[in-house]
């Protein structure tokens, strides 16, 4: 029973699908810089709206698919927002009083902004992942001088992630059924279960890695410093223009609204 985490690339003909990986990477980096450096709630809302709109309009993916991806980071975004609000110390009138501490308006909005940043970054990452074939990314990065021996690791990670997740789920269930109930407190049990899970996964992954290394060796992987690519990445002009525009927009946004 495979784990149902759908973060995989899907074939398509959208604007982002036709754009080369490097141009998309430029857009993602430019937008990330802007998002990370914006600490204003209104600006962060605007950036979230823009990155979500670009994701939905230019990638050909359904809102449900984005929601499935964003859901994965939502808990992290919320906890980051709460932690941020707890750690930030901004003077002002108290708007929420709790036994733990009192919060000012600025502390709450800054915490919320941090959470929003995470969600905006998730939209950027997903729009890239859903529309970029890892093989094309590996090829594009190789063209910029990095050895294909390293860049193919991205493809391998995507091939093995679902296997690893499914296996972790099965091991967890297998250990749960051997527990037969509580012989120790829940925290101890959790820690012990994690240790057993890691031992089993590492042992099986090493065996799998040995077979995979042999299989790749037989196929001549790493034998020569360069390799042919059966499908050449197409450098589509509108995509490149989009990348340049995103850099320009980032600079303009930063200058006009004095980000930060």
């Amino acid at each position: 029973m495979a784990a149902r985490v759908d973060l995989a690339y899907r074939e398509g003909t959208s604007f982002f699908h036709r754009t080369d990986p490097m141009s998309k990477l430029v857009y993602v980096i430019a937008a990330s810089v802007l998002i990370i450096n914006s600490f204003n709630l209104v600006k962060q809302f605007s950036l979230l709206a823009i990155s979500a709109a670009i994701a939905l309009l230019l990638t050909g993916q359904s809102p449900q698919r984005y929601w499935a991806g964003v859901k994965l980071v939502l808990a992290l975004a919320v906890s980051l927002g709460i932690t941020g609000a707890l750690l930030i110390d901004k003077p002002g009138p108290v708007v929420v009083a709790t036994p733990l501490r009192n919060f000012t308006y600025r502390e709450l909005t800054d915490g919320f902004t941090m959470g929003l940043q995470f969600v905006s970054l998730a939209f950027l990452a997903l729009s890239f992942v859903y529309t970029t074939h890892p093989r094309d990314l590996s090829q594009a990065v190789s063209k910029w001088g990095m050895s294909y021996r390293y860049t193919h690791g991205m493809v391998l990670a995507l091939v093995f992630l679902p296997i690893l997740l499914a296996e972790a789920g099965n091991v967890e269930k297998a250990h749960r059924i051997r527990d037969f109930g509580a012989t120790m407190n829940p925290l101890q049990r959790r820690l012990q279960s994690l240790r057993h899970l890691m031992v089993t996964l590492v042992a099986r992954s090493l065996r799998r890695a040995e077979t995979l290394a042999c299989a790749m060796d037989v196929k001549g992987f790493g034998m020569a410093p360069h390799r042919t690519y059966f499908k050449e990445v197409e450098w589509w002009r509108p995509g490149q223009v989009f990348a340049v525009l995103s850099v320009g927009a980032t600079i303009a946004f930063a200058l006009l609204f004095n980000t930060g």
Binding site: R135, V155, C214
Partner: peptide
């Protein structure tokens, strides 16, 4: 010599 291993999941390295 080309070799095909027992488990298909362990030898496929592309998507």
């Amino acid at each position: 010599l080309g070799i095909v291993f027992q488990s298909p999941d362990d030898q496929i390295s592309n998507l």
